[in-house]
Amino acid sequence: MNRLLLCFSLLLGSIKIFATAQIPDLLVYKGDTLMLYANPLELLPNIDSFRNKMFGRKVVGSTACWRGYQAEWTVINQELFLTAIYSCSDEDERPKADLKKLFGEKCKEGKVGADWVSAKIIAPQGKRLYYVHMGYESLYEFENEFQFKKGKLLQVIIYDNSKSRSSIYSQDSVLRKFIYSHINWEILHEDSIVAKIVVQFSANEQGVIDQIKVMRGHSQVYDQEAIRVVHSIPEWDVFYRRGKHERRAWNLPIHFSPENRKNYAQ
């Protein structure tokens, strides 16, 4: 789905923000392998000293794997264990770290008890509802919240985001056509005017756009027309995260120009 026209701002909690969608760590839980929206190994106090020892050479990171590795975790008898560390390299057979060399006696039977992990960790599951090319912010149908204290699993809470839905009007081509064909060009008498107005808006649980403000304006008549036409969009995307509605602010540039007047004026 092409949404290049739009930029959105996210209100994030404690998740670290990265410029590129990340290769996630993996969690094996009750026979299922889940993605992790966290990197528990980074909670180790001495993680920096581990980083260059993992694969016998300096780890080369990438925008999709800033940490240079992908860790595998397993919950066994309500306890979290580190069971593998793989390189993020593009080699056919990715190097695998020797946990015994890294952790010494703490590594038993090929796994390491993750007693340093005290955190709430999200593992998404089900259908991907919305892709975000940043960090671990893509939205999925369900989110499993694993609550650990010193490596012990206290509880798992499952959040249902299935009420999220996409609107056809958030597609670039559909939105552009709607906006410019619904502008009342007759009230904008100055045909030669070129004005770029940026409107910020958000929608409620029903997908109704109910909050609008001008971030960059031109004049009262142009600003009000921009607000009116955005307010007339029939519906917008609805997002649920952690089972609750997540209001997002979208910035939309609207170009009042002779070319758009010529192409779209009725």
Rank of each mutant, 00 (worst) to 15 (best):
L4E: 14
L4S: 15
F8A: 08
L10E: 10
L10Y: 10
S14Y: 10
D25Y: 07
L26C: 08
Y29R: 06
A38D: 15
L41P: 02
P45L: 02
P45Q: 04
S49I: 15
R51W: 14
F55Q: 06
Q70S: 06
W73F: 10
W73V: 02
N77T: 10
A84H: 03
A84I: 03
K106M: 10
G110V: 11
G110K: 08
K111N: 04
V112P: 05
V117P: 02
Q125D: 12
Q125S: 11
G126P: 08
L129Q: 03
M134V: 06
E143L: 13
F146P: 04
K149R: 14
G151H: 09
V156A: 00
N161V: 00
K163S: 03
R165Q: 08
S167Y: 13
S170Q: 11
V174A: 04
K177M: 03
H182A: 01
I183S: 04
I183P: 04
E186Q: 15
D191R: 10
A203F: 00
E205T: 14
G207N: 12
I212G: 00
G217D: 05
Q224S: 14
I233W: 05
V238M: 02
Y240C: 00
R242N: 10
L252E: 03
H255T: 10
H255G: 03
E259T: 06
K262Q: 09
Y264D: 02
